[in-house]
């Protein structure tokens, strides 16, 4: 290749000139591309990936009354380089049942939220996907409309309903079903209801975009071959929508584990969720190293689901690109 290129480098030879021009363009092209790639790549590296290194670093340091409130890992005192790696935060996390319960509680709440979202979201997504095309868009918009309103507004809306003077208790009292208002707010139940309400759109959207691609003729073929609707659903629709189910579940589960706002506003004071623990360590206790350690452990729990979701999505995109 190289030798032929060289042999073509004869200024009288028009083919040689062409080859040289090509070489110039090919050398320039990747440089332009690299530059274009570098802009968003650099941004994400600097503002998304690199920060985790600092979190990791600070998670190994000790809290100190200073600004910022932690001791640097690497200190230079009298020409001696001191590196103090402090594992205390981690031993504390694994030793104290408070943290363990918080992690477990968060995982449990997130799992229940995911399951309920799936149960409620699937029929809705399916019905919209099977609706006539003209109505489909409007229905989807109606489902997504609450999602576009503020997250806080959605949480706040339930506070008025679940309050001890709220709509539910008023109704129960008026009907004479209870004598005194029920404690609905600040319970695990209220957290669960509001979590499902807040995260439902994240389940419906991927399910819908998966189910809408399902070829209706497959269902007709199954019916034609004598399959009852319920069985068709179990043997044809559900297996084919697996990607949507997985994507939706991940999109609900992963952020739900670290949820802070909902347990803070409608949760019980005693049972803590890990997002709230992190927040309290950081803002209330001003213990940055502890908050960093809590973050690292949470990341360790979530990194596998995140990578799994990412790989699946990339595969789906690659399939779409081939088509």
């Amino acid at each position: 290749m190289m030798s032929r290129l060289l042999s073509l480098r004869d200024s009288r030879d028009p083919a040689g000139r062409a080859a040289r021009r090509a070489a110039w363009w090919q050398r320039l092209a990747p440089r332009g591309r690299t530059l274009v790639t570098a802009i968003p790549y650099g941004w994400l590296l600097l503002f998304f990936l690199v920060p985790f290194l600092f979190v990791l670093q600070i998670s190994f340091s000790e809290v100190e009354i200073a600004s910022p409130p932690y001791r640097a890992l690497v200190e230079r005192s009298e020409d001696v380089l001191n590196i103090a790696l402090n594992l205390g935060n981690y031993t504390y996390i694994f030793g104290d049942p408070l943290y363990f319960d918080a992690y477990l509680g968060s995982l449990e709440t997130a799992a229940v939220t995911t399951a309920i979202c799936l149960l409620i979201g699937y029929p809705i997504a399916y019905t919209i996907a099977r609706a006539p095309e003209a109505r489909r868009n409007t229905l989807l918009m109606l489902v997504m409309l609450p999602f576009w309103t503020s997250f806080l507004v959605r949480v706040y809306a339930w506070m008025g309903i679940l309050d001890s003077n709220g709509l539910v208790n008023q109704a129960l009292l008026a009907l004479g079903l209870v004598d005194a208002p029920l404690q609905l707010m600040h319970t695990q139940l209220s957290v669960q209801i509001v979590m499902v309400y807040a995260y439902l759109p994240f389940m419906i959207l991927p399910l819908f975009s998966n189910l809408v691609k399902l070829d209706g003729r497959l269902l007709e073929a199954a019916a034609d071959l004598g399959c009852r609707p319920w069985k068709t659903f179990l043997t044809v629709t559900l297996p084919l929508s697996k990607n949507g189910v997985v994507a939706g579940s991940m999109l609900v589960f992963i952020p739900a584990v670290g949820e802070f706002v909902i347990p803070e506003l409608v949760g019980t004071p005693e049972s803590l969720m890990i997002g709230k623990v992190l927040w309290m360590e950081f803002f209330d206790n001003n213990n940055w190293p502890m908050a960093a350690s809590v973050t690292i452990v949470m990341l360790a729990l979530l990194i596998l689901p995140i990578v799994y979701l990412h790989k699946r999505e990339e595969k789906a995109l690659a399939r779409a690109a081939r088509r």
């Binding site: 028009p14 083919a15 062409a18 090509a22 070489a23 363009w25």
Partner: peptide, 19 residues
């Protein structure tokens, strides 16, 4: 990958589409 394409006496093998 290898070989040449010559159009009207000019070697165009490595020319960009827009050239």
């Amino acid at each position: 990958s290898s070989g040449r394409i010559i159009l009207d006496g000019e070697d165009i093998t490595h020319l960009a589409p827009y050239e």
